[in-house]
């Protein structure tokens, strides 16, 4: 799997300078957003690199090459999921390096704070985004799946906002209800658990789709 992930990095040599510029842009433009800015920055860069790898794979029709090599389809799918966290680590590392440089040079505008909250937010966001993106991509190939992915994102955004509106109408988040009394830790644990379940479902779907995919 290591070689498959390394390949996803190598084929995007040209995207890495863009990723660095994007991180610098987020770092200096969203400093005031704090942790949310970090989440946004890491998510955007990770998603850009993840989509980039899938697009290049499709452009070269290299799925056919991978499946022809002595590699199981399962490994190809799992490596793709793991590569997301490698890209996320790279984006976090970039932010860390920028903050070190900013501190060292004592630049007035500062940089995005490397908080656990921001990092966790980014991990949750990239996991959810890739969990939506990968199953259609493994079924149809990235180029054909693009429209479906867009529709899925739209449904998710619409669904989440209507759900939030419904919940707020029920008064669950009013003072002294159960939801306002549970700790921050428990909320984080719930979010992580839900994210993990979504990831597992997405992974199983991708494995099933890719097993049946014809080239």
């Amino acid at each position: 799997m290591y070689h498959l992930i390394k390949k996803d990095i190598l084929i995007q040599k040209r995207s890495f300078p863009i990723a660095i510029l994007l991180t610098l842009f987020f770092s200096f433009s969203f400093t005031e957003m704090g942790s949310a800015g970090l989440t946004l920055s890491v998510t955007a860069v990770t998603y850009m690199l993840t989509l980039g790898a899938s697009a290049l794979e499709d452009q070269n029709n290299s799925g056919k090459l991978l499946v022809s090599l002595p590699i199981t389809r399962k490994k190809i799918v799992l490596a793709k999921y793991l590569s997301v966290y490698v890209f996320a680590s790279f984006a976090i590392l970039l932010n860390y390096l920028i903050s070190l440089i900013v501190d060292f040079l004592r630049l007035p505008q500062g940089s995005l704070p490397l908080t656990a909250e921001g990092i966790l937010g980014a991990v949750v966001a990239v996991t959810l985004m890739c969990s939506i993106t990968f199953p259609p991509t493994f079924k149809l190939g990235y180029i054909k799946a693009k429209t479906i992915i867009f529709v899925l994102f739209f449904i998710m955004a619409f669904g989440v906002s209507s759900l939030a509106a419904k919940i707020s109408q029920t008064g669950l988040f009013n003072e002294n209800t159960l939801f306002t009394r549970i700790s921050q830790f428990s909320i984080t644990a719930i979010i992580l658990a839900v994210t993990f379940i979504v990831l597992i479902i997405s992974c199983l779907l991708s494995l099933n789709f890719y097993k049946k995919r014809e080239f």
């Binding site: 390949k7 290049l56 070269n60």
Partner: peptide, 8 residues
């Protein structure tokens, strides 16, 4: 057809 990654 060529299936290799052009960037490599």
């Amino acid at each position: 057809e060529n299936l290799f990654y052009g960037e490599l």
